[in-house]
Amino acid sequence: MTDRNPKLLIEASGVSKQFANGTQALKNISLTVERGEVLCIIGPSGSGKSTLLRTLNALEEISEGDIQVNGHSVHSSKADLNRLRTQVGMVFQQFNLFPHMTALENVMLAPLKVLKQSESEVRARAEQLLAKVGLADKAQSHPAQLSGGQQQRVAIARALAMQPSIMLFDEPTSALDPEMVGEVLEVMKALAQEGMTMCVVTHEMGFARAVAHRVLFMDHGEIVYQDAPVAFFDAPRNERLRNFLGQILKS
């Protein structure tokens, strides 16, 4: 990997994925993400954007191509996935908090068990992270006692506790009641301003426009168009994207 651009955190080339039933979920996708970049991926449902995101930390296998994260091939048989995933934080649409643990325990679990850091160190960092997402007072609450927005913020803190070099967000606000979307986006915005590298699959066009460095439009398993947000939203030079944006504005 001597010819690697050191600024590149993610380098996907020629990635295809076919499901067992023959559906082509991803078609020959190439994608790079630089350190500190915020990338938003939009597109109609079923376009493969979540699948693409999930291949980046090998939650989803690929049929062809290569994905490098931090210079390590994710889908090679020799990949140490557990080590690799500590570098890649992930936030899910359904939050997926561990319901049998308090918010604080959710945040502390992986650093304790995977990184084997000391309890006092992990606890201090977890409390700090919960404060950062505005939930210092909910540390002892179980997920069932929290609202959707609060749960998602705990989930973000949980991913951050591993001190990842990139954060993946898989439609983080799609399962939320409208009045809770804002609080989650605020946390993500703050994260982006700190220089965190982020890949965000989202339907929040306002967020994409305000925060992203680059927006990417996917349809039928392909990257159809990508551009800086202003050009992407105001003067899209692509027919399919114009149609998609038109539909979204209508609704």
């Binding site: 939650l59 995933r85 561990f98 995977v114 991913a159």
Partner: peptide
């Protein structure tokens, strides 16, 4: 998935 994505 959440547990695995944390590196466990």
């Amino acid at each position: 998935e959440a547990a695995r994505s944390l590196g466990m």
